[in-house]
Design a protein around this nucleic acid. Sequence first.
DNA 1: GGTCTGATGTCAGTCGCTGACATCAGAGCC
DNA 2: GGCTCTGATGTCAGCGACTGACATCAGACC
Lengths: 172, 172
Amino acid sequence: MELYSELGFEKTTVAEIAERAGLTERTFFRHFADKREVLFSGAGEFQELLVGNVANAPDSFTPIDAAAEGLLAAAAVLQQREEFARQRANIIAANAELQERELIKFASLSTALADTLRARGVTEPAASLTAEVAMAVFRTAFERWIDQVGGRDFPQLVRDSLEELTALTTGR
Amino acid sequence: MELYSELGFEKTTVAEIAERAGLTERTFFRHFADKREVLFSGAGEFQELLVGNVANAPDSFTPIDAAAEGLLAAAAVLQQREEFARQRANIIAANAELQERELIKFASLSTALADTLRARGVTEPAASLTAEVAMAVFRTAFERWIDQVGGRDFPQLVRDSLEELTALTTGR
DNA sequence: GGTCTGATGTCAGTCGCTGACATCAGAGCC
DNA sequence: GGCTCTGATGTCAGCGACTGACATCAGACC
């Protein structure tokens, strides 16, 4: 993270990272699948957090509302680590390869979310579509949270985006 | 495309591609930014097609309906080249790096779509959210189109997914 | 015939990443 | 205390993607 912030992602070599960590390049690649993965090592826990809250939502909740439970929990956790989240977002925003990796992590989240909804009895294609739309809401809210300086409440931004979504489709 | 289908993407070296094309490796990289980009060289025209149809939609259309015009036009064109689209989808489905690249192309499309909606007078965050949701609909419909053997009508699948979307949110 | 330009070839080099094998420190056992 | 076993790390050689610098060459235009 230090080096990626100082030099930028591209200009940082794995050799430099290894050196600063007091390890070998080979060892680096034993801990991380590739140079990008460093910034995404927490993705697993993040996914479990989000999906877990969806699974535990009351049975009476609609698919969208169940998904929203997961999004809100995830947003709350990121809110806690705002500084870290900002630094990380800046690094990613500066590099296309990292954006690609982030997108596939989001896609993986979307798949996991769809699976969870299906486990709640939601049928296809509603499950996949809800999952995709929920992640779209999350991304939109995240972007707004990061872009602003003031530091508004991330979970609240998620709620706002969900409202927007409803307005979009009911207005047809 | 031939080599990627025969050997798989990873096992194909740029040297082999260059040889079959009767060119040099260096020349390959002058035509394509990287090994993956070969499969995405048509992305620019595709984007213009989609966005163009959104821009030309009647002013009276809601954001979602305007976006739908673009999706339907894009789906119709892919329908024309079904065989090519299938082969390409298979290659991409077999490789994670290619999926990453495809996702960022979709994201780029989403951004362009949001811009177009904004030019139609749609305000934020409705523009971004509509764009994201529209692309989610497109992806979902595309997946269903490719997965089935029968070869159902792609534009019709897009319409179906749009209906699903409405149902999702109005059911709250 | 001459010049100019854009595409291609050549070459050397960097960097990400991997496989194979050696080393070494600590855990647990006798 | 000595032994073995295991997991983490180091070492080394090598492949393949990608780049910069310079040379070459064919066709366009004058």
